[in-house]
Design a protein around this nucleic acid. Structure first.
Lengths: 251, 251
DNA sequence: TGACATTTGTTCATATATCGCACAATGTCT
DNA sequence: AGACATTGTGCGATATATGAACAAATGTCA
């Protein structure tokens, strides 16, 4: 196949970078070849290219990414206006309600944090811009999935491994689709310890000036402090207010 | 030039990604070609490849990066143990001294934040993992530059645009080299409003189990609360304690 | 321990895809 | 409309991917 508008060497290289992950911080050439389904010779050339450019280190056997790789993601975070616009609003919101507030966008089946104002840590995992969570069991994920055409949401759910993180996690696709319908109707989503025991969260969609949902805002709170029922009572108005004041600023 | 172990298409593509930045969120093909010094046809192919893979969006004229790009940097943040190891220590430290605490590594002439525990915001800019600051005027940058062979530090300073962010910013290379020598001797660096008026910070090096400096830790405080002189009195011991307890865990 | 079986990294020749150039087409100003 | 800048496209020269072959390292079992 000869696609003249496609640089496969580039695409292969990006695949190689993505081969590195939480569970796989250091990889051999063969590891990468397996993970990416590239030929070993090709994987080797990509890795050596990364090393040559300073994006990776190489001790003879293992390859490790260097912080220079962060320049790539940073290109997005600093280039995209959304994180910058949203951040001060999150700060104010977070201070006002004394809970963590975040913003995220949807990337496939996952939500990606683009800004966050955290109060004392309640979650075991540490969320920061760039962090990812499965959309189906995160409050922001629910509102963004709900904003999609039903068919699209269904396809995304089909692509997701619906794992139960806690006994509360909803993992039945039909039940989830129903939940999405409710979220769409009521205009917000509440998650009651589906991702982590002890953690509740509520999210609202963030729409741009043309009414398109482009992101989501949420507030997370310890379940011990705030019951799931109380989440909406306490936090829905502040969240909606922020979303409303942001709306005209977003394009 | 025929380097058999180098995929230039990949290298070119990475250059294209880095062409996007704070000042240049949306770029045309010609913009990218100029910024990267690539041929227009090549820039176009790389951009179309990014779009095809979902790393960029394309409205016919402008290209914009999508959040999927964050996967690349995320590969590092989640793959590298350092951020995960350091984070809880920063949280504890930050709470103990009621100030923001951060960790960063050196990437060329810049420091890159890899973890951060922030208290109320004092800085005008929002720092987060992946954020970059020039090394010469940041406390963590000073200690990491000081840990390099003098010659190397000198070269890095030569490569840096030594801009005065405030009237306090040290921009004379000779003076900076002298400052680095002092930092090396005393084992920490204090910055008195060189990056931003109203902000002081103190940093110590973070060494691994073999004694190599691999990162830096710092505490930042509002100058109104804590004078530069007090920084060391108050925060040096806590910082050193954290660095010491981390040392055996780092390789 | 020693011999065999695997896995891994590297090299090479060749088929193939990409690069950069020059030109055409389109869009954008005054 | 004319001038300018930007984008799209075919083609030859050049660089790259492929897969097999080999060497080195590693693991395995008696």
């Amino acid at each position: 196949m000869q696609e003249t508008d496609f640089v496969s060497g580039f695409a292969r290289g990006l695949k190689v970078i993505e081969a590195f992950g939480e569970a796989t911080p250091k990889l051999t050439i063969a590891d990468v070849a397996r993970a990416t389904e590239l030929d070993r010779a090709t994987a080797r050339r990509c890795l050596l290219t990364l090393a040559e450019l300073g994006y990776a280190d190489h001790d003879g056997k293992f390859f490790v990414l260097t912080p220079k790789i962060l320049r790539l993601g940073h290109a997005y975070l600093s280039a995209t206006p959304l994180p910058h616009i949203v951040q001060p609003f999150l700060d104010k919101l977070s201070e006002e309600v004394h809970q963590s507030a975040s913003a995220s966008v949807l990337d496939g089946t996952e939500i990606v944090y683009i800004a966050r104002a955290s109060q004392k840590r309640v979650m075991s995992i540490n969320l920061m811009p760039g962090s990812r969570l499965p959309a189906y069991c995160a409050s922001m994920g629910r509102v963004m999935l709900a904003a999609l055409p039903e068919e699209e949401a269904r396809v995304l759910l089909e692509q997701t491994v619906l794992k139960a993180f806690t006994p509360n996690t909803k993992t039945d696709p039909a039940e989830l689709m129903q939940e999405l319908a409710r979220v769409r109707d009521q205009g917000f989503a509440v998650i009651d310890q589906e991702l982590e025991l002890g953690l509740c969260s509520i999210a609202v969609p963030l729409t741009n000036d043309r009414g398109r949902v482009i992101a989501a805002l949420n507030i997370g709170a310890p379940a011990a402090q705030v019951s799931a029922d109380e989440m909406a009572e306490r936090y829905l108005q502040p969240l909606k207010a922020v979303a409303k004041s942001l709306k005209p600023m977003l394009r």
